[in-house]
Every structure is written in structure tokens, then in C-alpha cells.
Design a protein around this nucleic acid. Structure first.
Lengths: 333, 333
DNA sequence: TTGTGGTATGTTACCTGTAACAATAATCAC
DNA sequence: GTGATTATTGTTACAGGTAACATACCACAA
């Protein structure tokens, strides 16, 4: 019942040549005589040959596959990063192998091992800190690795990202400049990048002589969590007149919760998010947000990887891409 | 410079045994004597061995990888489908290889070929119609294939989805029941599933003696497109009092555009979307929408695939999962 | 005719983990 | 002590495409 896969040998037998000749035809038909060319093509069509990368992967340890390791796939941010990556890798003939690790370092280690066991030619990762074993694996693998999402060099790996701290600093400044003073920060799952954003927020608040007020949670960010945070904030810190959220999901949830309660945006409460989702930019009022270079990050990281794979020089220092502060309609003027 | 990958042979040499013994240790440490066990473990740690699936894929044509073929990765709908798939496949020890084809049939054919060339053990696809060559490849491959997103059997493949036509029919009926009459349909990229939804809309309108009004586009759906459609609708069909959109993106775009123009929702215009995004359900007013079983679809499809891979019986007829009509706050009461 | 060059095809070996079988040593029952 | 049994390790072969090298053949120049 389990009919074996058609191999080059099957084609060769049908035509009466060796598989080497068929192999030549596959890679460069010009190398084969006219007569055989037609016969081989006919046999291929008839038997339905599907190329098999396994032998090549085994003998050359080149898979033409590239591993992409992200904390989450459901987060819209990473969907756009993926689009950027694929826009470069797919035309270059590389297949991407996606894996996610739910922000857990040990899970990341396992994913790295899995991807390496498939002989990926290169890796795109989104953390700068790993378990010791993961770190060692990455070094041992001897393949190009690029780190995304962050432009602050923690490791010695090539990196493509943006400055999370500076972006949050600037947005906080913008909020203060527009007359918001008692600004709270909403943070969900505390990864390295959120910590940097908090630092930026705290620095800007301190510079203006204002005291920070931070709400944290271990949960993943969601609209619901944003709404919950808002309710809590109104209880705990009713004088608040501004909220800066670590991402748009929280901000949108908080904004809707304000609307339900009849709190005026931006008069009574200024709200800002982070990343510049399509929703944030389409909604009424338009959400103030930091527009981050999500797709570019993926694209440029993939380009760096291709350079490395071709043995060409890559950026030795982290590439910091520009972001954009959009004050939208959810901050005072 | 390119130090070769550490192999079992390297470990074996270090310990002074054959690689077969090391292989046994890897698969079942009990089979190896105490003394060797410790030595081998030490050598593995020291040399940083990373398993290599390539030989196994070559000799058994089993990769423990499963191909997932989706029209788009940026669409939030598919992100949730992926989450469902991974929630089953990852614990089962399978790596997913994701590929997307941008709704193009020829591109889908290429992706299928690529995934098969990596010896995926099974495939999850999201179309029921393929190019002739793609169809032949799927048959020749001799691996389990499950189709998702649709419960209407076009092919003979196992399918897990929901009834797009019936869902659209019911939502249209609900809109009519709530007093909306001149209901327009907004459709973006016309894939098979959107066509089915349009059929459901048309049938419900016909049943109520109302005339359909459909706006179509080749573009991908987006908030912007929803807003554009709304502007056009107000020009071309100003008496419209309801809009049913083929997905939430269009609906949200149209809703925001109404808000900007001061059109009252739902009094002057009823709006309904499709899929039940988080945003749709969090926004003010809450969007009427068909809540589709996105994550379940992925999960159950993956479960069916595991059954097939274990040689157990799978559903022979398409599995139609339940959906839910949520009238939200964007339809009259 | 011999030699040279080029084209078309064949042969061999390789990549690495493991199934299948073989061998060896140690243990035990009688 | 002999044969049987078990535990442990070794040997061989295999999967399929292709690099590298070898061969065969023909055309043409000297």
C-alpha cells in the first residue's frame, strides 16, 4: 500500500540511463542530449517525480531552509516581521521554518535544538539572552545568526532592531509636552524589550520631575487586560491623566474601557500605545503610538543573513532602524 | 574555519566505542552499560552534540515535520489557526513548516512541491481546488492531507472547517430580523470561501424579498478598504441601512468611517463582520460578527492528522464545526 | 594515421544515523 | 561442565542526489 517515493533511479531505469544523467537534466537540461532530454522529461511527467532534498542535506549539510524563532505567532507584530523576512527569503529560494517559544527561555533552547537538527542554514532569533546550553549550541552550529527586535547589543551577534528605550523615552516626553502629567505605564508580559521601554518611560518622567506609576502583569497582553488595568488604575490612582502602554493591544483595551465609562479622550485621559498597528491608526480617535519598523526589521535581517550565507561582510554593529512617534488624536494638543 | 558538525562518530571516537553504541544511548540509555553511559554523556556535553535528522529523513523518509499551507500569514485569522495546529503538533513532537501562497494557485503548487521536497510527513492545506499538477503531487506523495477552513466537500480529502454559506445566511437573516433592509455586502479578495458567504447573503436577501448590493475588490481586505467601500456606498446607494462585510477588517474600517462622518451605529447603519476578532469584540460599539472556530479548526485538523499518521481511522466526511452569531451593539435591537 | 579537444554519459564514493544481524562475554540451571 | 540465556557491543548495509573523476565517442587538424 505504501508505494515508495519515485526516485531519480526510477526515472533513469525508465529511460535506460543512469540516475546521474537524470540528475544533470534536473539541474541543467543543456548538459543532456536532445533525445534524452525529451525522454527524461516524459518520464518525469509520467511518474510524477518530486525532488528530494534529504540526500543533499545529508551530504552537504545545506538545507536551503532558514529557522525563524519568535516568542509568539499570534501577536500581529511578529506576523509583520515574518512578512518582511519572507519577502526576502522566498525569492532567494529559501524555505523558512517557523518556531515559537512563548517567551520561555528553556522552550527557546528546545526550539533551537530542533531547528538545528533539521540543518537550517541560518537562524533569525528574537532574544539576546539565552540559556547557557542554547548559547553553546548557537556557537557550535557555525551558521549565520541574526538577532531582531532590539538594537542594543547584548550578545556579539549581528542585530537588526530599534531602540526600545529611546522610543519610549520620546513618547513619554511627547505626552508630557502635551500637558499630561500623571502618566501611568501599563506593561504586560515582562520581556527584555518591555523592560527597556519602562526604563525610557521612567527616565523621561524623572527628567520632568514626575513620579512614575507602573502596572505589571504576567499575562499576555490583550484588550481585556488593558481594560482591567484601567479599572484598577481608576481605583488606585484616580488622579491619573495619561496612560502609556507597552503595546497597542493594552492601549486599545484601555481606550475602549474609557469610552464605555464616558471618560473623554484626550481631555480627561491621554492614551498612547506602542507599535503602530493598523487598528490603532484606523480607530476613532486615532491612537497615539510609536510606529515601529516591523516589516523592515524582518526584511533587513533576512538581507543580512543572505549576505552572511554568501560569505559577504555583514554589519558588525547592531542596525538601529528608525521609528516614528505618532501623537494621533488620543493626546491633548 | 568551517568546523564540521559534531557527529555520533566523533563522540564514539572520544569514548572508544562504535557510533552504534552512542546511537543506542541517544535513543534508550538503558541499553548501554553504566560505565559507558557516563562516558558518553560526558563526551556529548563536552563536544556539544546536536542531533541530525537528515540521515533518518533520507533512510526512512520520515521527517517529523508537517507542512502547513495558508493563503496568508498576516491575517489574524490564520495566526489563530496556526496556534491551534501547534497546540497539538508541538507536544506530539512534530515541527511545523509554514508556507503561504498569497491566494495564488500556481504559487500554492510551488509551495506544495517545496514542502514535499523536505519530506514532510503530512500536510494541512486551506484550499479545496488546486492546479492539476498540485493535485497529482498530493496524490503521489502518499501522505496524510487535511483541508481546513471549509466544510463543503470539493475534494475527497478529509476536511475540518465550518459552513461559510450557512454562517453568512444566518447573519444576514439576523440583520433583517433586526430591521435592516437595504443591506450591502462588502467583499475583498474573492476566494472560494468569500464566494460561499456571498451565496449565503444572497439567499437570505432573496428569501426576504430584498435585493442584494455587493461591492467587490481584488485588493486584500484592510481597514482602509472598508472605509473606501463605505464612501463609495454612500455615493452609489445612499439609502443603505446595513452592511455585512466578508471579514472584520472591512467591517471595522467601515464602522470607523461612519463614526468619523457622524453616522449613528446602529440607528442609521447596521454593520456586521465575519470571524470574531478580539478587536471586534472589544470595540465600542461591539461589532456584530460571526464568531468562527479558528483555533479549534487548527487543533482538530492536527488531531485528525495525528490519527492518520498513526494509521488510525479518520473522519471520512468533512467535519463542520459550530460558529456563533454575535449581534454585538452594531445592529438594531 | 595519430593526436587533440570537446561532448555526452557512466562509475564511485560520500554524507550520518540506525535496522538487522552477528559476535562475544557473562550468568545461570542442572 | 555444558548448553542455554541474557546483556552488551560490533559489523554491515542502506537511504538518494551529486561532486569528482573516468570513459567512450566523434570531429577535425596535422
Amino acid at each position: 500500500m505504501k508505494k515508495k517515493r519515485t526516485t531519480l533511479q526510477d526515472i533513469a531505469d525508465r529511460v535506460g540511463v543512469t540516475k546521474m544523467t537524470v540528475s544533470r537534466f534536473m539541474r541543467n537540461p543543456e548538459q543532456v542530449s536532445d533525445t534524452l532530454r525529451h525522454q527524461i522529461q516524459a518520464a518525469l511527467d509520467e511518474l510524477g517525480y518530486i525532488p528530494n532534498r534529504a540526500p543533499d542535506i545529508l551530504s552537504k549539510a545545506k538545507s536551503h531552509a532558514i529557522g525563524v524563532l519568535l516568542p509568539s505567532l499570534t501577536n500581529q507584530v511578529f506576523a509583520e516581521v515574518i512578512r518582511g523576512i519572507e519577502s526576502v527569503l522566498e525569492p532567494a529560494g529559501y524555505q523558512t521554518m517557523l518556531a515559537h517559544y512563548g517567551y520561555s527561555k528553556t522552550s527557546e533552547e528546545q526550539r533551537i535544538a530542533t531547528l538545528l537538527s533539521y540543518n537550517v542554514d541560518a537562524l533569525i532569533i528574537s532574544e539576546s539572552q539565552h540559556t547557557e546550553r542554547a548559547q553553546k549550541m548557537l556557537e557550535n552550529a557555525g551558521i549565520p545568526v541574526v538577532e531582531i527586535m532590539d538594537s542594543v547589543a547584548h550578545s556579539r551577534l549581528p542585530a537588526v532592531g530599534f531602540d526600545n528605550r529611546a522610543a519610549a523615552f520620546e513618547m513619554t516626553q511627547a505626552m508630557i509636552a502635551r500637558g499630561h502629567q500623571k502618566i501611568a505605564y501599563f506593561a504586560a508580559r515582562m520581556d527584555e524589550r518591555t523592560l527597556q521601554r519602562i526604563q525610557g518611560y521612567e527616565a523621561a518622567m524623572a527628567e520632568a520631575g514626575l513620579s512614575p506609576y507602573i502596572k505589571k502583569s504576567d499575562q499576555a497582553s490583550s484588550f481585556t487586560l488593558g481594560a482591567q488595568f484601567l479599572e484598577q488604575l481608576l481605583e488606585e490612582f484616580p488622579q491619573a491623566d495619561g496612560i502609556f502602554c507597552t503595546n497597542d493591544d493594552l492601549a486599545i483595551g484601555a481606550l475602549y474601557a474609557c469610552q464605555k465609562r464616558g471618560i473623554l479622550i484626550p481631555e480627561q485621559m491621554g492614551i498612547a500605545g506602542f507599535h503602530g498597528h493598523d487598528v490603532a491608526r484606523a480607530m476613532v480617535p486615532r491612537l497615539a503610538t510609536v510606529i515601529t519598523p516591523r516589516e523592515d526589521m524582518g526584511r533587513i535581517a533576512a538581507e543580512q543573513l543572505l549576505l552572511a550565507l554568501n560569505g559577504e561582510a555583514t554589519h558588525t554593529t547592531p542596525i538601529a532602524l528608525p521609528y516614528q512617534i505618532d501623537c494621533g488624536e488620543s493626546l491633548r494638543c
